[in-house]
């Protein structure tokens, strides 16, 4: 998880499912690509929470494991 340039095609895991991404995809773009609601989710990349303020700055890397999940408030 860094801002280095990735190769043209990379393999990542998104919520446990293998996916291939083409081009340089930043996290916020990934959410749009996957039609996920940007204002309703949190993201973990490689077992670390990625705060929302970083989503426009972090590029998906080969072998990244990305988990997207909803906030839960019930009790």
């Amino acid at each position: 998880m860094n801002v280095n340039q990735p190769s043209q095609s990379i393999n990542v895991m998104i919520n446990g499912v293998a996916e291939t991404l083409k081009g340089h995809v930043i996290i916020s773009e990934l959410l749009i690509l996957k039609q996920l609601p940007i204002n309703a989710v949190a993201i973990v990349v490689n077992d670390e929470v990625l705060p929302r303020s970083r989503w426009n700055h972090v590029m998906c890397q080969h072998d990244d494991s990305i988990c997207v999940f909803s906030a839960v408030a019930g009790g």
């Binding site: 949190a42 705060p51 019930g74």
Partner: peptide, 20 residues
């Protein structure tokens, strides 16, 4: 991080027990 670092205050949340 704190709870706000995880879920900013403007997050759109629908998952409560009474709804789901």
């Amino acid at each position: 991080g704190c709870y706000r670092c995880l879920y900013p205050v403007d997050i759109d949340i629908k998952q409560t027990c009474s709804q789901q």
